[in-house]
Amino acid sequence: MTDQETTAHGPVPVHYHQFHISDLEGPAGPDLPAAGNGLVEVEDGVVHVLTGIHTGDVEVDITLHDAAPAPQLDAWDEAVEISLNSASGELVLHAMMADLEEEFPALSFNGPGDYRIRVHARGRDTAVDLAPDEITEWYLLQVWPDKPSAVDVLKATDQYGADQRAS
């Protein structure tokens, strides 16, 4: 695999302000409240990526890397890194109540084990609590194998994230 390769790009359905990442055989991570970072919450081992829109589609890009890519944050409002585990080697992106139109690869591209994911978000303040017909939010998920480490908030500038951190 070449570094910085975009391996997937497409719309992801959102319901109740979230889309998910989970592993088929076990918890992807320990519980993590949204109040700590405003973008990613882990509850019962499922990762919830928090969106400003209530219902609709967001655009998601996924890149898989052999090692941590250098952060490039200028185009993003929020960016958070968390550690995840894949017991099955099937750490996957999915919608809460709908099928995905695009086929996204397993985020655990190196098989079972520990991974680091950097979640970027832009546009969450555009249509808060609404169900827009067009895409108003964009996300980038960068994933690489890495040992577990603490949550790292790299950028926190949107109002929706500030509201989540305050709750």
Rank of each mutant, 00 (worst) to 15 (best):
D3E: 15
D3M: 14
T6V: 08
T6M: 09
T7M: 11
T7I: 13
A8P: 05
A8K: 07
H9R: 14
H9C: 13
P11I: 05
V12Q: 02
P13S: 11
P13Y: 10
V14C: 01
V14L: 08
V14G: 00
H15E: 10
H15P: 00
S22Q: 13
E25L: 13
A28Y: 05
A28R: 03
D31V: 01
L32M: 06
G36A: 04
V40S: 02
E41M: 13
E41D: 07
E41I: 01
V42P: 01
V42I: 15
E43V: 15
V46T: 13
H48F: 13
V49P: 04
T51S: 10
G52N: 07
H54F: 13
T55Q: 14
D57N: 15
V58I: 10
V58N: 00
E59D: 15
D61P: 04
I62Y: 06
I62R: 00
I62D: 01
I62N: 05
T63R: 12
T63F: 02
T63S: 07
L64E: 06
A68C: 14
P69D: 05
P69E: 04
A70H: 06
Q72A: 15
Q72L: 14
Q72C: 08
D74M: 10
D77Y: 07
D77T: 14
A79G: 09
E81I: 02
E81Q: 08
I82E: 01
L84D: 04
N85Q: 12
A87L: 12
S88C: 01
G89E: 04
E90V: 10
L91E: 02
L93M: 07
L93E: 00
H94L: 06
A95S: 15
A98F: 09
D99Q: 09
E101T: 14
E101R: 11
E102V: 11
E103P: 04
L107N: 03
S108I: 04
F109H: 12
N110R: 15
N110D: 15
P112C: 11
P112L: 12
G113R: 11
G113L: 13
Y115I: 03
R116Q: 10
R116C: 05
R118K: 11
R118I: 03
A121D: 03
R122H: 12
G123N: 04
R124K: 11
T126G: 03
A127Y: 00
V128L: 05
V128N: 06
D129H: 11
D129F: 12
L130R: 09
I135P: 00
T136F: 01
W138T: 15
L140V: 02
L141H: 00
L141Y: 07
W144Q: 06
P145T: 02
K147W: 10
K147S: 15
K147N: 15
S149C: 08
S149Y: 01
V151K: 03
V151E: 15
V153I: 14
L154K: 14
A156Y: 09
A156T: 11
D158H: 00
Q159R: 11
Y160W: 12
Q164R: 13
Q164T: 09
Q164L: 15
R165G: 03
A166T: 13
S167R: 15
S167A: 14
